[in-house]
Write a protein that binds this DNA or RNA. Structure first.
Length: 432
RNA sequence: GGCAAGUUACCCAAGCGGCCAAAGGGAGCUGACUGUAAAUCAGCCGUUUUCAACUUCGGGGGUUCGAAUCCCUCACUUGCCA
């Protein structure tokens, strides 16, 4: 099977406006007045923004929802401001469960650079509605504590602030909340107001868990500028079986290819549950309504073909990592999961497939148990032994049944070995 | 600042001097069944040189033949009072 043609990002012309499209895609969970938003989005270009805090060296799948929403609005003619929170990242958005650990300022600054590069990949910086990257550290760093309290703090009522979901959840939990995190919503409110003053920004998008922070900016703008700004909160993406979306083998799925390989990324999407795949296509691809409805019928009629999953995996992987990387991921997947035996694969095909996987280089006669640890398939020798004892490990598709087995030359294919744990976890071993 | 309660493995949570590497649930892993799906059933789930040893129950110190369990101290969290 060859890679399908990549779909160029576009809005679906069958909708009256981009508002109807994003509603159909299930991207609007909460928002300010719907009629006003519809009118705003179908009118002349407006300026909108979405913020990303540097709490890690890379964005993840939750952020991808926002990035694609930004892109959809830009394709509809509006002008995006991509904000990376150089200052808010130093404070930390309150999570409902527990206080965050503060990150070192130098580390946050480094992450800001990584995130800006990632955000930039999803937006166009050309034309009438060219995107712009902004950093809230630019306007918060020069602010003195006195200015902050007099000019900003005076507009925020503690009663209102206490009612925000994240804050009240924390107040009602045994974790409590620090003054630092309590103040977060003020910073985000300031951002929106600042972007309104500087760029005329009147719409902010974000996850629905950010709703309190979004409205905080709307209130602030209303009090200081007398203008009604808008916000759209996207739904939290959940799996129908109740597990957390965006986790693969317990780890977050990152957009950075060095943190989550394109192969692992592709596999993540390919493994989407039937019950979720259509909703994912709507949110994470630019496919038209007609095409998605066709795939919906395909899932109903021929679920075993998993066409919707294949299309989804291809589309999202190409959007995030490019068509070449996506093709590579497909090739590797087909080599590893294909029907034919591995020994039939040409050396170069096998090698490029293994390069997509976690891999290690070793010398002849290494213990299988140790190789499992080296490639990350297991986290300890004990776990390796257990996996082997349970019949879950194979080398080049030959089951390993001895816990102390070593990698012998006879088992190698062109000096390489495909280490497999369970049904879906693979790693490459190169023997020199 | 005072008083009280609490801090247990990825998460929640039992344990309250030896029977504790630590109940139970969730998550995770493997096997069977499958469609690289879901559901279900079974097993695993601190480390290691695995009939045994070693390191863990917020940090440090102490009592004891023996501590997650008792005492002291420090840190943090929560509640009430100021």
């Amino acid at each position: 099977m060859s890679a399908p043609a990549a779909t160029a990002p576009a809005i679906d012309p069958s909708f009256p406006s981009v508002w109807e499209e994003i509603v159909w895609r299930g991207l609007v969970h909460v928002s300010t007045n719907e009629d006003e938003l519809r009118e705003l989005l179908s009118g002349p270009p407006i300026v909108y923004y979405c913020g990303f805090d540097p709490t890690a060296p890379s964005l993840h799948l939750g952020n991808l929802v926002q990035l694609l929403l930004m892109r959809r609005l830009q394709l509809a003619g509006h002008r995006p401001l991509g904000l990376v929170g150089g200052s808010t990242g130093l404070i930390g958005d309150p999570r409902p469960t527990a206080e965050r650990t503060l990150n070192d300022a130098a580390v946050v600054a480094e992450w800001v650079g990584y995130l800006q590069a990632q955000v930039a990949r999803f937006l166009s910086f050309e034309g009438e509605n060219a995107a712009r990257l902004v950093n809230n550290l630019d306007w918060t760093a020069p602010l003195s504590a006195i200015e902050f309290l007099r000019d900003v703090g005076k507009h925020f009522r503690v009663g209102t602030m206490l009612k925000k979901d994240a804050v009240s959840a924390r107040l009602n939990s045994e974790a409590g909340i620090s003054y630092t995190e309590f103040s977060y919503q003020i910073l985000q409110g300031m951002d929106f107001a600042q972007l309104y003053r500087e760029y005329g920004c009147i719409l902010q998008t974000g996850g629905s868990d950010q709703w309190g922070n979004l409205t905080s900016g709307i209130d602030f703008i209303h009090r200081t500028e007398g203008v009604s700004a808008h916000a759209i909160g996207t739904p939290l993406i959940t799996n129908s079986d109740g597990t957390k979306f965006g986790k693969s083998e317990g780890n977050a799925v990152w957009l950075d290819p060095t943190m989550t390989s394109p192969y692992a990324f592709y596999q993540f999407w390919l493994n989407t549950d039937d019950a979720d795949v259509i909703a994912r296509l709507k949110v994470f691809t630019f496919l038209s309504r007609a095409e998605i409805e066709r795939l919906e019928r395909a899932v109903a009629d021929e679920p075993f073909r998993r066409e919707a999953q294949r299309v989804l995996a291809w589309e999202v992987t190409s959007i995030v990592h490019g068509a070449d990387a996506a093709s590579g991921a497909i090739a590797a997947s087909e080599a590893l999961f294909g029907q034919g035996d591995l020994s039939a694969l040409p050396a170069d095909v096998l090698e490029s497939a293994l390069r997509e996987l976690p891999h290690t280089t070793t010398t002849p006669g290494s213990g299988i148990a140790q190789l499992l640890v080296d490639t990350g398939l297991t986290s300890s020798l004990g776990e390796s032994r257990r996996a082997i004892a349970q019949g879950g490990v194979s080398v080049n598709n030959a089951k390993v049944d001895d816990e102390s087995a070593v990698l012998d030359d006879a088992a190698l294919l062109h000096g390489m070995a495909v280490l497999r744990r369970g049904k879906k976890s693979f790693a490459g071993v190169f023997v020199e």
